[in-house]
Design a protein around this nucleic acid. Sequence first.
DNA 1: GGATTGAACTTTAGTGTTGAAGTCTTCAGG
DNA 2: CCTGAAGACTTCAACACTAAAGTTCAATCC
Lengths: 189, 189
Amino acid sequence: MPTETPEASLTSGPHEPSLDEQIAAYQREFGDLDPQVEKVVSALGRLNRRMNVAYGRQVADLGISNTEWEVLKTLVLSGSPYRMGPGELAKRLGLTPAAMTHRIDRMAGEGLVTRDRDENNRVRVIVELTDEGRAKWLEAMRMATNFEEDLLQDLSGDERAVLGELLIRVLRRVEHDQPDAGGRLTDLD
Amino acid sequence: MPTETPEASLTSGPHEPSLDEQIAAYQREFGDLDPQVEKVVSALGRLNRRMNVAYGRQVADLGISNTEWEVLKTLVLSGSPYRMGPGELAKRLGLTPAAMTHRIDRMAGEGLVTRDRDENNRVRVIVELTDEGRAKWLEAMRMATNFEEDLLQDLSGDERAVLGELLIRVLRRVEHDQPDAGGRLTDLD
DNA sequence: GGATTGAACTTTAGTGTTGAAGTCTTCAGG
DNA sequence: CCTGAAGACTTCAACACTAAAGTTCAATCC
């Protein structure tokens, strides 16, 4: 057995703290906070993390990455004929134009989208969803909705409605203070 | 004026779709979904994105990145004496050990943490929060709690309680299906 | 109508992340 | 002991992203 020093518990307990433990720890380390607020915020954070992991795993089975799926979604939501310029795409996805260029390169290489110059204005580029891209989106969408339905399974119809309403009210507050992309929507970091 | 071709609306309307528009677009493109579920999920997604942006901006003012803040949080939550091994840190943060090594390098260079070999087991490394690191965490925490308080300002005490409860029930469902880190917690992508 | 401004995208340099291979230490067996 | 195996971290190569500089085409000014 490895020399069990007192501090050896450093790596011993993988024991990821439960939400309650986490909140208790915050109370301990930073007394000055409202447990009710912390509960909501911590739950939101964890939930989103888990959801991202879940989505990532699912779309990986389709041979695409989470980031590629984001692009497919954005194109589909723009409606037929599923075209958009790299600049607009970048803005919606919170990426720099440079990153968008590379992402489109990859996706075009995989046949998910096409990239062409606009004949009427040769500075512009048109990214268009291919049939294959749309098919991938559809498959991903089916998986996602199954997962989402399952996610909310423990909630009654009324509860779902209430949850939706409350979230939207909170969302309105951020979107108001932080109207769209004041600058870049630089996610994480 | 640039030649306004019919498709020129490609880049014309930065018009980021509202939540309602987004949900309507999903209905249009993929009839087979429950609007109530979609409302909750879409709101969650947007909310988290906005929150990440907000946190990122705030801690940037303190001269640290969002990712560094994550490390500080994890160390503080572990409780005094705020020590942890890189491996455990990586697991909690959903990073590979390799990334953790570099992150610790940087943070040690900035004086936020120290990195030392465990005297009792020289394979192990101990990352410990410095006073400066703890001070940064404290500042960040103050900003964060202000923001979070503001975020929920439009909700009554009861509503906050309900929201927290509902989120926790949803969370329980994911954490049950996806118990902790089955493998790596590869966020996004 | 030729130069200037401006818009939309691409290229380049630098940083952070992953996955795989490598190093060093400790533990267990002969 | 001395060897082999396992664990904990680090190094390396490849990839994705950002910020800033560069390129190309279109519109406007004189």
